[in-house]
């Protein structure tokens, strides 16, 4: 039982990371109908920028870990967003409106480029840092086994929930959100009605990148080590999460992320850990067979 609770906490933390990345996939897919294959690499870049920022701050001493994290967060948000913006501007925008697979191949190219670019600049080795936040609450104890929720985990879950709330507000209540939803429905019509479509799409990429940066920071804090390859699998799983939740749906992305985090945590606890990714994809296939548009996706009525 205690073990179960511990895995639940771990799974939620992991799920928060996947969910934040998944939102980036789902938003971009919703607005321009493409799989932004490079999004996983944006997350990896976010993690790298975070770890670099922490290392730079290191010698100044952490007056308070919270201050350090806020500074790093700001740095990571800004620089990662620029990457998100630049990718769209350089590699996707010229291909908008051309043949369906062209942007996908371009995205795969960007993904290969970014991965190897970071590899080339920062080396292949795993980069570890000292834990920034320590300690936590002990929830239960049984013999030597301690169920603990760390301050970090609490912070992650609170931050994710806050981000989700803010984001939902942004999409539903602000003019930017309205423009975004209008572009999703009908880009041409939105343009005719005076929505700046280019700007809206750019901002979508920037927001996606910003959330990926947060996910990258969380990863850095939680696992304490980063390498150039983390983007691929995390991106893959986050995209799986977006599809599982119903692509195009923001709550779906979060739900999908949480589910995948939980599946991974529980599978790792009770079954051979090596096959946890197989389990994740297996569940995706099963869900899609019974609900082809994902858990929260709108069933699309075929227009004939």
């Amino acid at each position: 039982m205690e073990y179960l609770v511990q895995q639940l906490i771990n799974g939620l933390t992991l799920g928060a990371i996947y969910g934040l990345i998944a939102i980036g996939y789902t938003m971009v897919y919703g607005i321009i109908g493409m799989i932004n294959f490079a999004h996983g690499e944006v997350y990896m870049i976010g993690a790298f920028i975070s770890i670099i920022a922490f290392t730079i701050l290191g010698p100044f001493g952490f007056a308070s870990p919270i201050v350090a994290i806020i500074i790093v967060l700001a740095v990571a948000l800004i620089f990662t967003s620029v990457y998100g913006w630049a990718i769209e501007r350089i590699a996707y925008r010229p291909l908008r409106g051309s043949f369906r697979l062209a942007p996908l191949i371009s995205a795969i190219g960007v993904s290969i480029f970014l991965q190897n670019y970071v590899h080339m600049l920062q080396g292949a080795k795993m980069k570890p840092i000292q834990p920034v936040v320590r300690g936590g609450f002990v929830l239960a104890q049984e013999g030597t086994f301690v169920v603990q929720i760390t301050y970090l985990q609490i912070g992650i879950i609170v931050a994710t929930v806050a981000l989700m709330a803010g984001f939902t507000y942004l999409i539903q209540r602000t003019s930017l959100g309205r423009a975004q939803r209008a572009c999703e429905q009908d880009r041409k019509m939105a343009a005719l009605l005076g929505v700046d479509v280019d700007r809206t799409i750019s901002l979508t990429f920037v927001m996606g990148a910003a959330l990926a940066a947060v996910a990258g920071l969380i990863f850095t804090l939680y696992y304490g080590a980063v390498d150039f390859f983390i983007g691929f699998l995390a991106g893959l799983k986050a995209f799986t999460a977006a599809v599982l939740g119903g692509i195009g749906s923001l709550p779906g992305a979060m739900l999908g992320g949480l589910l995948i985090g939980l599946i991974e945590a529980f599978w790792s606890a009770y079954f051979p850990i090596a096959y946890k990714d197989v389990a994740v994809f297996g569940i995706l296939v099963v869900v899609l067979i019974f609900r082809p548009t994902g858990l929260l996706g709108r069933p699309d009525i075929e227009k004939v």
Binding site: I90, F99, A102, G109, I112, Q115
Partner: peptide
């Protein structure tokens, strides 16, 4: 090598999307 490879993929796509 792989950096240039990724870049080439993007450039060719931009040049000839079809």
């Amino acid at each position: 090598r792989m950096v240039l490879f990724g870049m080439a993929m993007v450039l060719i796509m931009l040049w000839r999307p079809q």
